[in-house]
């Protein structure tokens, strides 16, 4: 038996919005510790990894390991039927784990919607992601990162991210011209969520596809801050932390032909 009741049901709605563009089908791996999902996009350029810890649910029950194969587009359609303030409960039985039950309770508990989502067998390989000491770690407002990606898309399909002592610079060059945005590290005691924090081991310069970064910024509503981790010749990590877990996006760097 698997049962997970999420008081902040709106979080699940936002989470689905943040992965559905990148991944079509994925397994939700449910265990005692929580719900995890790892999937690559169709072109195997990006990887999404998300975790919702069991402590974030009330109650959470998972007797044994479950792998629930879900078409994310279908799940997203059903989750659109839940109100933003609804409590969402997910359930799957031992015997008939061929469907996932979802119930949506409104805050007054006088309207309850119940839905069943058919599950599917998904043969997905699970990659192990090693702990990495990154050359540069940047914590910045997520809305600012989204704006930079959106603005530079006007100029080019790719962006070069340069990190040096106290500056992160995003540069795009295209047929119509070029553009760059520099952010200096700042600290705001009153509003720490608005500051730009740069931790640097050594200077980094890497180029990435803006199309994928734009997709990653679908995670913006999940957190006021985004964490960017970069190392030379390594995938970029873009992370949005939530109270009950995280969503991490990995993107392989563009490399010279």
């Amino acid at each position: 038996m698997f049962e997970a009741r999420l008081i902040q049901g709106g979080l699940l709605k936002k989470l689905l919005e943040s992965v559905k563009e990148l991944v079509t089908d994925a397994n939700f791996d449910c265990s005692e510790s929580g719900i995890a999902l790892q999937a690559m996009d169709n072109s195997h350029v990006a990887l999404v990894s998300l975790l919702l810890r069991s402590e974030g649910f009330d109650p959470y029950r998972c007797d044994r390991g479950f792998s629930l194969g879900v078409n994310l587009n279908s799940l997203n359609k059903i989750l659109k039927c839940a109100g933003n303030d609804d409590i969402i409960t997910l359930r799957a039985d031992d015997n008939s784990a061929d469907s996932l039950s979802l119930s949506f309770e409104n805050p007054n508990n006088d309207r309850i919607g119940e839905y069943e989502l058919k599950l599917m067998d998904i043969d997905q390989e699970h990659l192990s992601i090693p702990e990495t000491d990154y050359d540069a770690t940047i914590i910045m407002p997520s809305a600012e990162f989204q704006r930079i990606c959106r603005d530079l898309t006007v100029v080019s399909e790719s962006v070069t991210i340069d990190v040096s002592k106290d500056t992160i610079k995003f540069t795009a060059e295209g047929e119509l011209g070029s553009g760059n945005i520099k952010l200096k590290s700042t600290s705001s005691i009153d509003k720490p969520e608005e500051s730009v924090n740069i931790e640097l081991g050594q200077d980094v310069s890497l180029q990435f596809s803006l199309k994928y970064l734009m997709n990653f910024t679908k995670g913006t509503p999940l957190s006021e801050q985004v964490i960017l981790c970069l190392s030379e010749k390594m995938p970029l990590l873009v992370e949005y932390k939530m109270d009950i877990g995280y969503i991490r996006y990995y993107l392989a760097p563009k490399i010279g032909d």
Binding site: M40, V45, P130, P235, L251, A252, D257
Partner: peptide, 14 residues
Amino acid sequence: LYYQDAIDKYFERP
């Protein structure tokens, strides 16, 4: 010319 590298070559298969 640039091309986008594959992500799965950076991570280990179990």
